[in-house]
Structures are given as structure tokens and as C-alpha cells.
Nucleic acid binder design. Structure first.
Lengths: 233, 233
DNA sequence: CGACAGCGTGACAATTATATGACACTAATG
DNA sequence: CATTAGTGTCATATAATTGTCACGCTGTCG
């Protein structure tokens, strides 16, 4: 599976290190920032999957950063868990109102932290993945693992299924072969990029003549794009 | 790669010189202005890639200039890093709210300065690569690799796409064939400069009769210019 | 006017990118 | 163990793109 990246934002380095250790044991990648400004830069540059955000920080407060994140479309849906000292718990209502997904009071146990992170990531994933997706005549049900087009069931291999799944949640955007390899095959794969071509071919075949050039478009020199819109080339 | 131009705006010439040295060592081009009025003129004329802006200046303050830049569409997305004395740090919230991308407290180390500049330029690059650009009837979407004019999809080769992309982020300025070769074909290319002519021709063709002479103008003896404004030669 | 440089245009062959079919290898299944 | 479905790589076929060139037009300058 894909390794998720978590950004911890806190001005106390002890907290950051504790969290980092816990996260790495649990198989996450961890980034650190000690103030809101660095955090914002890291979020833009590294696009982490989740942010742990301390409430009280010098300069810009966590709440301000949170609001800033929510305002920008690129980061609007990024899961954020706020960290807070016991005494500030009352403020958390404000935090949740501003778009935090969860919060934890210091001190917290690493176990609980990991649990909440997992939960938040699962919810985020669920938002993107668990509902059946229907585009045009194509019905994709990730729970039952069924794919049909105009009520006619399709058959495809696991890789084609993942590939289709990836495309469905990333429509109208061109991905290079390398990016597709990363997302669909997961992590650091050393593999011939042309393999992607072959699986694209197989997926197209599986989608049948209807979806042949309709859904998956080749963008010469760039990669592939899934789109339900017909594009005049 | 491309050499970025940075404009330093400060009323203290010592600061300006120090920054200039640091920037030139790091491979940037550097412009100087000692007040907001000159700065504004330079921004319009030279279109720098980033502005270092002092907070306190006689006459117009940095903050006012910043607001002015943000109001004008042409300069709205120009990265601005504010410079501030320690004592004024509280005001920086106001600065960030007004659209500064970052700030630095004097005195600062050249290293840190360069790091922040790099980071800001990187972010700007990312933004430019991600956001669709619309000028007149022309819509350029780098994410989906779609180009359309008056909602009619256009088709063009990868090189024409890159060429258009370059022009869109460098409008209203004449580029020689050599410069275009450098920017669009990347780095040290040994190639017939007249190849550029051919690709200009292809791009014009792809843009259709509408954009034929409208967007890309020939400047005899100098090169080409992309502009949404009609220019009387 | 005439020579000339700068540019536009269409054609074309070389190059490069992508599509497709075949095959060997692996893991899963009964 | 035999069978089967699935995977990754390769060779070949097909298609799109690219750089160059030759030719013609147009404005410039003496």
C-alpha cells in the first residue's frame, strides 16, 4: 500500500520527536515543522496526507494556519488533527468549527494518537473510495469489486481494477507513467514504465469498445488521462 | 535553468547591497529600488519573479505597496517576502493577511534569505503549473493538459503545448528565438533557430484563425511576443 | 527600382511515442 | 500436480511529432 505522510507542527521539539518515533514505528513517514510558516511551506511542497497541528504556537497560531489551509482549495480537504493542552479544551469547539477533523489533548498516549490518525486517514480514504462511483454508463463498486458498463458486467484483473480505481478518483488530470506506477503499483517500484502502457491497453480492452478511447485518453508526451468528457482531438 | 530576477525594495542602501551580493552569489539577478514608487515602476517594467519588500519606508510603506500589487491583476500573484525589524514582528500578521508570502526579521542571515527565496519561488512555480490560465477566450489547463478557445478544444503537439505554456507565463514581452529555444526546449540546445519559426507557425495554426495574429505577434528583427492586447506596431 | 534580409508556409524524411500481440514466468486454485 | 489467470517484458506495427529545407512573400534600405 501507499505510505502515508504526516506533518507534525509544534513548537516543542520534545513533542515532535515523540510523535515522530511513534509514527515511524507505525509505518508512517513524518515531517516536522516548528512554526506555522514552515508548516505551510512544507504542506505546499510535500503535500502530506495529514497534519497534526498544535493549537498554541508563537507568531501565527495553529488556528490561523488551519483557517488558511481551509481557504485554499488545494489544502481544503487535508485532514487536520489539532493538539491542545488540557486547559485549552474549551477552545476546541472553535477549532472543530474551523475545520479540524479531530483533536487530542496533551498529554496523549502514542497508541491513541496512532489510532486517531488511522481513523482520520480511513475517513478521508472512505470519502474518496468507498462509495460506488458512476460516470456515464460506467458503474464501479469498490466494495463488491464489481465493474459494469451499461449494466453489463466487466471482467478484469486486479491490476486493471486498481488502475481503474485510481483513474476514477483522479479524473480529468494527466498522469505520467511514473506517477501511475507510483500510485497504482505502490511505493518505490523499479519497473519498466512501458508496463503502464500494457495495462492501459488491458484496461481499455476490458472496458470494451464503448470505453475504448472514450474514458482513457492518451496525452502524447505526457501520460494518460481519464475523463468522461469526450474530447475532440 | 532559468535565472530568476529578484527585486529588493528598501530605503537602506546597506541592506540592498548586502542582499544583492548574496543573491548574485546564489545565481539570481537582482534589481534595487529605494522607495515604493520606483519599486512599482520596476515591477511593471522588468517583471521580476519575486520581491523583497521592506516594511518601513518613507512615503509609501511596504504594506501599502503590497496591497497595491495584490489589487492589480498583473502583479496579484507575484511572490512577496516582507522584511521587518524585530520590533515590528507583531505587524506581520497584518502583512501575511495582506498577501505576503513570507517574511523575514532583520537582521537575517544570507543563507536563510536564499532558502526562503528558493522556497517561495518553488511554491510559485507549483502554483503556476497547477492553476489554469485564462486570457481572453483562451483557456489553458496544465492539469488536464487541455487547451480550448471559446470552449472549443484545441489540439496541439507537446512542443506547441510547452511553447504556449511559456508564452502564457511570460506575456507582453519580446523573446528572441534563442531565448525561446532556451526556455521551451530547455538548456543547451544546438538547433537551428528558425525551428522556432516553424513551431510558432504550428502554434498559431493550432490556436485557429481566431488567435492567428491575435495572440502571437512577430517583432521583426527581434523575436516574438505573446499578448492578449492588440498592439499596434 | 532592385537587392536583400527576415519571416511565413507547406512538404518530407527521420525520429520518437504509443498500440498491440506474443511469450515466458509466477502465483493461485482445485 | 495440473491448470489457469495474471503479470511484466519484449518485438513489432502503427501513428504522431519534429527538425530541416526550399520556396515565396514582404518590408527595408540604398
Amino acid at each position: 500500500m501507499e505510505e502515508s505522510t504526516v506533518l507534525i507542527v509544534d513548537d516543542e521539539s520534545a513533542i515532535r520527536d515523540m510523535v515522530t518515533v511513534a509514527l515511524e514505528v507505525a509505518g508512517y513517514r513524518c515531517l516536522q515543522a516548528e512554526n506555522a510558516r514552515d508548516a505551510h511551506a512544507l504542506i505546499i511542497d510535500e503535500s502530506p496526507d495529514l497534519v497534526l497541528l498544535d493549537w498554541m504556537m508563537p507568531e501565527t497560531s495553529g488556528l490561523e494556519l488551519l483557517r488558511r489551509l481551509r481557504r485554499d482549495e488545494l489544502t481544503a480537504k487535508l485532514p487536520v488533527i489539532m493538539l491542545t493542552a488540557k486547559a485549552e479544551e474549551d477552545n476546541m469547539i472553535q477549532g472543530l468549527d474551523s475545520g479540524a477533523d479531530d483533536y487530542m489533548s496533551k498529554p496523549f498516549s502514542p497508541r491513541e494518537l496512532i489510532a486517531r490518525i488511522k481513523s482520520a486517514l480511513r475517513r478521508q480514504d472512505a470519502k474518496n473510495q468507498e462509495e460506488p462511483i458512476q460516470v456515464d454508463g460506467l458503474l464501479f463498486d469498490p466494495i463488491s469489486h464489481h465493474v459494469s458498463i451499461n449494466d453489463k458486467a466487466l471482467s478484469m484483473g486486479p491490476t486493471e481494477f486498481r488502475l481503474l480505481s485510481f483513474f476514477l478518483s483522479h479524473q480529468d488530470r494527466v498522469y505520467s507513467r511514473g506517477q501511475i506506477l507510483d500510485h497504482v503499483w505502490g511505493g518505490n517500484v523499479y519497473m519498466d514504465e512501458r508496463t503502464v502502457d500494457v495495462h492501459i491497453r488491458r484496461l481499455r480492452k476490458a472496458l470494451g469498445i464503448d470505453g475504448h478511447e472514450r474514458f482513457i485518453q492518451t496525452v502524447r508526451g505526457a501520460g494518460y488521462r481519464f475523463s468522461q468528457k469526450l474530447v475532440a482531438d
